[in-house]
């Protein structure tokens, strides 16, 4: 590509292996959760025969629950890794909301997406807009799905199980009744889907148009840069 000038290829190791494994497991599990979740709300056309001939709804729910536990374990692990991992691993959990210059950078990033400024800033970690989006949509979005999901799950496992005692007992009255929890859990899915659409689109666009590598970084862990001016985040 002609606009990428010749420059020193200086790579930085950003995404440690556990983060990359976590990311792709997460992506796969959430994909499965959305499909099976949709089918729980609006099941496939009915099949005939006797009950022992099929186990369609059973398998759909089974896949939902297995993926759900992958997401739960993944989330817990991701929180743990925010403590022990490198500086980039903390980013999505603690956006520096209190720093004024950080908001200026968010604004700059918005202008870049609005195509008002010609060039984005250069980041080793996430750009600030990505951090906000991931913080709200991923961290809180997933937590919401986990809490409401476990509350629904506890209804099946019943009183006396940890899912029921820790989640169903307070989440269900909080939302009103079980049907309301279903509705919110369902709406949460669409919030996550909107995030994923944006996320994937932006990842591809940034990979092409920004000043650093994006998609390959989440595969190899290394961030490459397309020019050798200094990065705008301090690391």
């Amino acid at each position: 590509m002609s606009i990428v000038e010749k420059h020193k290829e200086e790579a930085v190791y950003v995404y440690q292996a556990p983060i990359r494994i976590w990311h792709w497991v997460q992506a796969f599990a959430i994909f499965a959760l959305c499909i099976t979740g949709y089918l729980i709300g609006s099941p496939l056309p009915s099949v005939g025969g006797e009950a022992y001939d099929y186990y369609i709804m059973g398998y759909i729910r089974w896949i939902h629950f297995v993926s759900a536990y992958l997401v739960i374990v993944g989330f817990v692990f991701r929180v743990y890794w925010a403590f022990v991992g490198n500086v980039h691993a903390k980013q999505i959990f603690l956006p520096p909301f209190w720093q004024i210059h950080w908001w200026a950078e968010v604004w700059h990033e918005i202008k870049w997406y609005a195509m008002i400024v010609k060039e984005p800033k250069k980041y080793t970690g996430h750009n600030p807009l990505a951090v906000i989006t991931m913080h709200i949509m991923y961290v809180w979005g997933t937590l919401f799905m986990i809490v409401t999901g476990l509350a629904l799950y506890g209804e099946g496992t019943g009183p006396g199980t940890w899912q029921h005692s820790w989640f169903s007992t307070w989440v269900i009255p909080l939302f009103g009744q079980s049907q309301d929890v279903h509705t919110w859990h369902h709406l949460g899915m669409w919030v996550i889907i909107c995030f994923v659409i944006t996320h994937i689109y932006v990842a591809v666009r940034e990979d092409i148009m920004s000043r650093q590598s994006i998609i390959s970084s989440m595969i190899s862990g290394w961030r490459m840069f397309k020019d050798d001016r200094p990065a705008d985040d301090q690391h």
Partner: peptide, 15 residues
């Protein structure tokens, strides 16, 4: 068991 199998009433007058 019909729920788990995926066997549903789609309309009130169907099979």
């Amino acid at each position: 068991p019909h729920f788990d199998a995926g066997q549903f009433v789609e309309e009130f007058d169907d099979e």
